[in-house]
């Protein structure tokens, strides 16, 4: 019983606070919305994103996002992604990153997390789980 307890304690010590910045909105056009715990937040360049945020675009919306591990994303029109998990040790440049593409199109250039360990960066779609090993790709969910 000791090992799981020790692991849990370490996880608590290492985990970053849930409200920590994971990246920022860099550019946007058209209708773009960030949903945080069910509340809509107005989007502007420099808006800090957090783990759990949902980013949504309307029919003419587009948005560019840069993350702390140098991952970059672009979300196309009529799209919705959820930033499910982002844990990153900025000193060691390692971590774990899971994004769900709920609908629409997502362009990605992967960063340090994807380099740190095989499949440390994953993209989830309604049917599949993708392991990202680099570098530039598009996921589309109809």
């Amino acid at each position: 019983m000791r090992k799981p307890l020790a692991a849990a304690v370490i996880a608590i010590l290492v985990a970053q606070p849930a409200w920590a910045e994971i990246g920022r909105i860099k550019s946007h056009v058209g209708e773009v919305m960030v949903l945080r715990k069910g509340t809509a937040i107005a989007v502007a360049p420099g808006l800090k994103l957090e783990q759990g945020d949902v980013v949504r675009t309307g029919k003419t919306g587009r948005v560019g996002i840069a993350f702390l591990d140098n991952t970059r994303m672009a979300l196309g029109p009529a799209s919705r992604i959820t930033l499910d998990e982002f844990s990153y040790d900025r000193s060691r440049q390692t971590g774990s990153f899971v994004t769900s593409v709920n609908r629409g199109s997502l362009g990605v250039v992967s960063g340090n997390i994807a380099k740190s360990k095989r499949d440390a960066m994953r993209v989830r779609t309604p049917t599949s789980m993708l392991g990202v090993r680099g570098t530039k790709f598009v996921v589309e969910v109809k």
């Binding site: 570098t135 996921v139 109809k142």
Partner: peptide
């Protein structure tokens, strides 16, 4: 169904990155 044409497409490489792949690990 709606997901029949979901896809992942690898684009060009970025700045000579060493790792260059995406895997369906479902």
């Amino acid at each position: 169904g709606a997901c029949a044409h979901d896809r992942v497409t690898l684009l060009d490489n970025e700045d000579g990155a060493q790792q260059f792949a995406v895997a369906d690990i479902t």
